[in-house]
Amino acid sequence: MHRVLLPFEFAEPTTVRGALALIDGEKTRALAGGVDLVLRMRLRQVLPEKVVSLQKLPHLDYVRADDLGLAFGALASLRQLEASRAVREGWPLLAEAIGSIGSVQVKVQGTGVGNLCVGTPASDVAPALYALGARVRLTGLADEREIPIEEFFLDVGKTAVRPHELVTEIVVPRPPAGSGAAFMKLAKTSEDIAKVNVAVMVSVGDGAYADVSIALGSVAPTPLRAVEAESLLRMAPVGEAAGVGNPAGAAAANRVSPALEATGNPVSPGLEAAAQAAAQAAVPISDVRSTASYRKEMVRVLVKDALARATARALAGRSDVQAPGGVS
C-alpha cells in the first residue's frame, strides 16, 4: 500500500461525447466513485497516464422504474439503488445483494455500474443482475449497443467495454408475478469481498417451478449461471422440491442470517440435486480466502438455502426487503 498516488493527467468532461473521446485505451481509466480505482492506484496495480472523471456528466445518476423494468445510469450509487423504494419493492434481490455490502461509505461513493466495470467475479451486484436477466447498455462514439450481462464479463478484470466506450445504463426486466428471490453470501467479514455468493430467482405456478435462475459469484473467472441446475428444477413440483409444508421451510423466508443454519429443514431431494449440479458448475480457485474445494461445497450449501428461501418467499408472496439502516 502506497500513501501517495503517482501523477497522472486528469480530465473532467461534462458531456458523454467528451468523455468517450478521451477514453482511448489501457492507459486511460474512467473514474466514477473511485472506490476501486483509487485503491488500486494506491496499490500500484493500476498506473493510468490519464484519469477521466465521469462525475461531471449530467443526468446519469438516475434510478427509474416503470411497468416494464428498472433502469439505472452510470452514476447511480449503490446507496441510491439500495435505498430506492422502487428497487426494494420491485427488485428486492438487487437491494438484498447491495445490502450485503457493509460499509455505508463504500455504498455512497461506489456506483452500481462501477461495481460491474471492475470486472471482478466477486461482485455482489453481478449475480443478482445475472439472476434478474439484466442487460448492459454501452455507448460509443458512433453507436449504442445493448448486451446481456453474461456477455459483459469476459475474464477476471476484463469486461466487454471497448476503447471509446462507456457503460451508460443497466436495464433490468421486472420479475414475473409469483416469483421469489434470495441472495446469500459467505465472506470473512461484512467488509471483505465474497468467498462465494449466490443469487437465485424462482417463479412458481400451479405447484411447480415455472422458471428458475441461479447465479454464482466468486467461483469462476466471471460470475456465471448454473444452467444445469436450473433445468433440473424447471417444471419440478414445488412442494417436494422445497420441502414446503414443514415449518422450517416457511421460517426460512424470514431468517436474517441463515447462511449455514437454514438447512434445519429435512433435505429436499429436488433442491439438493440442483444444489449439487450448481456446485459442479463452479470452477473456483484456492486463495487467501478459501480453498477451491471449500468454495465448491459452499456453493452447494448456499444454493440449496437460497432456493429454499426464494421458494418460501414466492409462496408467501413477499417481495419487498426492508429499508437499509438509516433510510427513512
Partner: peptide, 13 residues
C-alpha cells in the same frame, strides 16, 4: 452531507 472516505477520493473531485 454524505459519509465519504477521504483517503480514496481525489481532492480535485
Amino acid at each position: 452531507g454524505k459519509p465519504s472516505l477521504s483517503c480514496l477520493i481525489l481532492a480535485v473531485t
